[in-house]
Design a protein around this nucleic acid. Structure first.
Lengths: 163, 163
DNA sequence: TCCGTTATGTTATAAAGTAACAATTGCTAT
DNA sequence: ATAGCAATTGTTACTTTATAACATAACGGA
């Protein structure tokens, strides 16, 4: 199992899957998924929308844990390095990665209204961009694709209000 | 003329082209390219690398102009709305748009080392992403693609140092 | 020329991210 | 087991990026 199934599992099941997968991957790689890092990953997966660093920090504090910004940012850096989360630069938020086994560029649909995110996986797009880079002798290290717009629910919502 | 020629004009010529094009477009659209907005656009085009808002503000102050952050951000908002510049979210910087006539998503190669930026224009990628969005009933408003890596010069540089 | 709209000036503050150093934890080799 | 080293976390202070709110000025049509 290296990809989260598309069968729309419950959020709690997704979170369990992500944590278990992360633990396995870190063990294989000889990196340490500490309590703090695991908790940050859990917080990210437990949220229906991507969270900013300070929102994560608030949850940690609610846990009763001590913490300052560097606490969160260091955990986030680790999770990013391990490919367990993505950072959405246009919104300064973080979201769990659904295919943490293969390092890959992020492809996201981001709802401008509700903040929900859908992760795409279009290998053709990735290949085309790699080819564009190569043709310009550019050494591509990472790809980030962020499509901003409106998710189906918010779209329906907006249309019903318009009437 | 609706696209900056690929024949590698001088930076000064590029800047002149961009300012003239912007003036025409704004007139056509009935929007006002004021002195401040024009100057900010000129500052952006005159720089070999994309600039952050505060770097632009520094130049404005060197001009002898009064100014605070909102001064710059408002001008930038206008230029973004008009499609005259792009914002590179991963770096919090702004760069001139080479095809300001057609609103379009940005596709960029960004050099991690020197900060230089190359704007791509791959309609296939754009169409594929639009199709992905549509198949999920997602209403796509804008696409942002940022490929981070190393430009040919910095690549050569790095390789020569490695020896 | 008056008036409403749009743009800019100004002050203050919010939000996001990092530097630097101290304290702690965990692992390894004796 | 334990000394010593490396990795992680705690803590303080700060930098950078961005916006809110309100005052002033410029512009453009009745």
């Amino acid at each position: 199992m290296d990809e989260l199934a598309q069968s729309d599992p419950s959020p709690a099941a997704e979170t369990r899957w992500a944590l278990a997968r992360a633990a396995t991957l870190c063990e294989q790689r000889g990196t340490r998924l500490t309590d703090l890092r695991k908790r940050v990953l859990e917080i990210i997966w437990s949220s229906p929308v991507p969270l900013g660093a300070y929102a994560i920090l608030d949850v940690l504090r609610d846990d009763g844990r001590q913490g300052a910004p560097p606490t969160v940012y260091r955990a986030l850096d680790f999770l990013l390095e391990q490919g367990l989360i993505h950072r959405l630069a246009t919104l300064n938020v973080f979201t769990g990665c659904r295919r943490p086994d293969s390092f890959h560029g992020g492809q996201f649909l981001i709802c401008r209204d509700c903040g929900q995110v859908d992760e795409l996986n279009n290998p053709t797009v990735e290949a085309l961009l790699r080819a564009e880079a190569a043709s310009r002798r550019f050494d591509a290290l990472s790809q980030m694709i962020e499509v901003l717009g409106r998710c189906p629910e918010c779209r329906r919502e907006a249309e019903s209000h318009a009437r």
